[in-house]
Every structure is written in C-alpha cells, then in structure tokens.
Design a protein around this nucleic acid. Structure first.
Lengths: 131, 131
DNA sequence: CTTGACTAACGAATGTCTTCGTAGTAATGT
DNA sequence: ACATTACTACGAAGACATTCGTTAGTCAAG
C-alpha cells in the first residue's frame, strides 16, 4: 500500500514570500530568489538560504542538489497552497462561512467592477456544478 | 489634534480562539472563557489567563478591572477583525486578487446551494454600490 | 599554485507564542 | 479565626521563526 506523503504545514509569512517567488520564477537557486526578494526589501543572502533550507526540511519546497548551486522548487502548486490558506482562514476566523470570508475580502479591498463581473461568473460556475 | 489609536496586531491562532469566544459571549471573565474553551480542548486556566493578559497589552481586548474577576471584551468587533484577516491573506497569498481568494475559499469547502445564492446576492449588492 | 568568488552549512542570538507551575491576595464558608 | 476556594500576577521553559556572522568546500582565473 502506497504511503501518502503528509501535507506540508501552513507556511509562515516569510516562507510565503519565498514560495511566491518560486511560483513566479519556477525552479530557482537561492541566489535568484534572493535577488528578487532583495529588490523589495533588504535581506541577507544567508537569511534566505537558511529559510529555504528549513522549508526543504518541512517539504514546503523540493531541492535538487545535483548542481553546485542547489535548485529549489515549490513543493505544491500555488493553487493548492492558496486553497489550504483560504480554507484555514475560513475555519479559524469565519466559522466555515464562505459568505463571511467573501464579504470580508470585498470590504477589505474594493474590487474593480471588471473583477466583480469575473467573480459573478465564477459563482455561476459553482452554482452549476452544485445543482 | 486627537491621537488615533493604532490598530492592534493580527491575532495569533490562540488569540483568535479567545476572541471568538468573546464575540459569542460578549464581555466575560477568564473563567467563562476558559469554561467555553475547555469544552472543546483541554486547556489550563492559567494558560487562558496569561494569553488574555497579553492580549490586553496588545489592545486586542479591553479589560475592566473594577471587579475582582476582571472582565474582558474584544477590542474590535468581529466584522472588523474578519475584514483585517481577509485583507491580510488577500495581500499575502493572493496578490490582492479577490477572485483568487474567493475561488480558494469555495474550492476548500463546497458551500451549500443556499449559501451560494446568498453570496450571489452579496455580489449584486457590491456591483450596485460600485457602478 | 594561489587567490578570489560563490555557495552550502552551521551555530548563535533574538524575539514571539504557548504552556504551566508557583506565589500572593481577596473572598467565602465553617 | 482558620481553612478553602477563586483570582491575578509572575517567571520560566520549550518550540518556532527570523536574522546574521563565520566557516569551509568548490571552482575558475591569473
């Protein structure tokens, strides 16, 4: 019987920033991630390195050590992690009420009308699936 | 010129559980919060007390010390905190895309058709306001 | 062969979150 | 008055999270 690998834990704030870079760039070295991150805020190279090493232990990223400069890749696709995070907040802060979470999101940042229309289409999609 | 009180920080997981109890019960003593919490998971009284004391320092809760058993109250209404948390996750994990967050939430937990209809009404409301 | 650049690894310091034991104090009952 | 109960306050321990300095290995150029 195959053993199912356990889900990696919820990423911390710092870890999520690195994952975002990896999702945007694809598999990258520490140097590439550091360069991207350092553009937005001052960060030491070894800080990024250490964080990514820990993330590898936690299985938040995969590491390819075949090259001298190890190549890191996000362990889960962006959508999977986003679903986890949304579901987690949904339970912890909204008692499972998707309506509450959506109201909170829309109140926090007024979405432009174009996006609202997209969201409406998304919703119709879900209603169709669930009928 | 009046000084605006700074926003309290994002509550941690444990703090959010306590806030949820306070929002449900209204102003309460540590004992009341502990009793409610202990029903769901084993927790020491002093653990809850300590957490609530720290939350008072952080202004996450207000404390009325006029009675021997201090009375605590959530520092911000539930909706305000929910909006903060939703907005925070929106920025950190979804690059500000409300559509992404909503997709994540709906994928994480299939909402019943009744709730989907409510969400659609909510959306129409927002489209009306934004036109 | 030596030097310098690049990289991983490690250890330590600091801060935060969570938990719990202990002490002191006020209220209550006998 | 004394013991018991109900609180608050405090300190410390353990687990993470974050940051950074230092060391050591590898490689290429001079």
């Amino acid at each position: 019987m195959p053993v199912k690998p356990p889900d990696p834990p919820r990423p911390t704030d710092g870890e999520l920033e690195i994952l975002t870079v990896l999702w945007n760039l694809g598999a990258s070295t520490v140097r590439e991630v550091h360069e991207t991150l350092a553009r937005r805020k001052p960060t030491q190279y070894t800080t990024v390195l250490k964080l990514m090493q820990i993330m590898a232990e936690k299985k938040l990223v995969r590491r390819d050590e075949s090259q001298r400069a190890h190549v890191y890749e996000a362990g889960r696709p962006r959508e999977w992690t986003q679903r986890q995070l949304a579901g987690d907040l949904l339970q912890r802060a909204f008692g499972g009420s998707a309506k509450g979470l959506i109201l909170g999101a829309l109140s926090a940042r007024k979405a432009p009308p174009g996006e609202l229309a997209e969201i409406r289409r998304l919703l119709e999609q879900f209603e169709k699936e669930n009928q």
